[in-house]
Simulated scan of single mutants.
Amino acid sequence: MSAHIASGRWVVWATFFVGAMFQVMPLPELAEVWRPDWLVLVMIYWAMALPHRYSVLTAFTLGLFLDVLLGATLGVRALALSLVVYIVVLHSMRFRNFPRWQQSLMVASLIFLYHFVIFWAQYAIVGDSEFVIDLFLPSISCVAVWWWLFWVLRNLRRSYGVK
């Protein structure tokens, strides 16, 4: 394995780590309900940019890590993130050709699906969740974050030659 390919993988896993740290970063109580799903957004970007390398298995692993990190029911976020990334990988070429505003709407719908699957799994399977509209507010905040995050991750990918 060449050092060039290894450095590219290092950059991707570093962005996953930073996304996980942003995911658990303390926020004021008012802003907590609007918290973007940083790790999910980073995973969506890499699944869209490099679907042959970062796909459902990576998403499942990161979802399990996120479940452990947040102290949630094991496998709930892994299931939700795997489903979202499967859709992204399936339509990655189409998503890449969308303009940014359409990409951000697709990301909002994927984040909505992510939170719906988490709610469904906790309510229907585990039975310890109740529906509140605040569950879907991160879908709105992720639209604004996507524009900036896409630009940052694309520039990182190009400057480090991640392939």
Score class of each variant (00 low, 15 high):
S2E: 08
A3H: 12
G8S: 11
W10F: 10
V11A: 14
V12I: 07
W13K: 04
T15K: 01
M21Q: 04
M21S: 04
L27G: 04
P28C: 08
A31K: 01
V33C: 05
L39M: 14
L39Y: 03
P51H: 01
A59M: 10
G63P: 03
G63L: 07
L64P: 04
L66F: 00
T73P: 00
L74F: 10
A78N: 11
A78Y: 01
A78R: 07
I87L: 15
V88N: 04
V88L: 08
V89R: 13
V89W: 05
L90C: 12
R96S: 09
R96L: 09
R96F: 01
R100I: 14
W101M: 15
Q103V: 04
L105K: 06
V107H: 04
A108P: 00
F112Q: 10
F112N: 11
I118W: 01
I118V: 15
F119Q: 11
Q122F: 02
Q122Y: 05
Y123I: 06
E130H: 08
V132R: 13
L135G: 04
L135A: 07
C142Q: 04
C142S: 15
V143R: 13
W148T: 12
W148K: 08
V152M: 14
V152C: 12
R154Q: 13
N155M: 15
L156D: 06
R157E: 15
Y160V: 06
Y160W: 08
